[in-house]
Lab assay of single mutants.
Amino acid sequence: DETGKFLVLALYDYQEKSPREVTMKKGDILTLLNSTNKDWWKVEVNGRQGFVPAAYVKFL
C-alpha cells in the first residue's frame, strides 16, 4: 500500500555515479521518499533507495 507516498515519473535515463544514487530508465515509476533538496530527490526504484536529479523526474 503506497498511501501517503508520491510517485514520480523518470523523464530521462540516469546512471548512478555514486553509491548514494540509483539508476533509473526513462518511463520508470519511482516512489518519492524525500524532495526537500531542490536538486536531488531521494527515491525508491526496483527495491533500492537513493538519489536522482530532481530535474529528471516529474510528479504523476
Rank of each mutant, 00 (worst) to 15 (best):
N34Y: 07
I29V: 13
T3Q: 15
Y12I: 10
W41Y: 11
T31C: 09
D39Y: 14
V8E: 00
I29W: 06
D28Y: 04
Q15D: 14
L32T: 02
L9T: 12
S18E: 10
K17H: 09
G50S: 02
V8P: 01
D1C: 10
V22N: 04
D13R: 02
K26D: 02
D13H: 04
F59T: 10
D13Q: 03
M24H: 00
Q15W: 14
K38A: 12
V52D: 00
F59Y: 12
F59G: 07
V43G: 00
K17Q: 15
V43N: 00
V45F: 12
A55Y: 09
G47P: 01
N37Q: 10
Q15L: 13
E2A: 14
Y12M: 12
K42N: 06
V8R: 01
D28Q: 12
K26C: 06
K26N: 04
T36S: 14
E16S: 15
T3W: 12
A10M: 02
D39S: 11
D13L: 02
L33S: 02
K42S: 07
F6M: 15
L60F: 12
A10Y: 02
S18G: 14
D39C: 11
S18Q: 08
D39K: 12
Y56H: 07
K25D: 04
K38E: 11
L7C: 08
S18N: 13
T36D: 15
W40G: 01
A10C: 08
L9A: 07
S18M: 07
Y14Q: 00
E16R: 12
Y12K: 13
K38N: 14
G27K: 02
V43E: 00
V43P: 00
D13M: 03
N46S: 10
I29N: 03
A55P: 09
A55Q: 13
T36I: 10
S18F: 06
L32A: 03
Q49M: 11
I29E: 05
N34T: 07
L32Y: 04
F6C: 11
K5G: 12
K17T: 11
P19F: 10
Q15T: 15
V8Q: 01
Q49V: 13
G27F: 04
T23K: 04
F51H: 05
M24W: 02
K26F: 05
S35Q: 11
L60K: 06
Q49N: 08
V57H: 00
K38R: 12
Y12N: 09
T3N: 14
T3K: 09
A10F: 02
D39N: 13
W40H: 03
V57T: 04
K5S: 12
G4I: 13
G47D: 08
V45L: 14
A10E: 00
V43R: 00
K5R: 13
L60D: 06
T3A: 13
V22Q: 03
K26Y: 04
P53H: 02
S18Y: 07
N34H: 07
R20C: 11
E21F: 05
L33C: 06
V57Y: 01
V43I: 07
W40N: 01
A54M: 05
E21A: 05
D1K: 02
P19T: 09
L32Q: 00
T36L: 10
L7R: 10
S18A: 08
S35P: 06
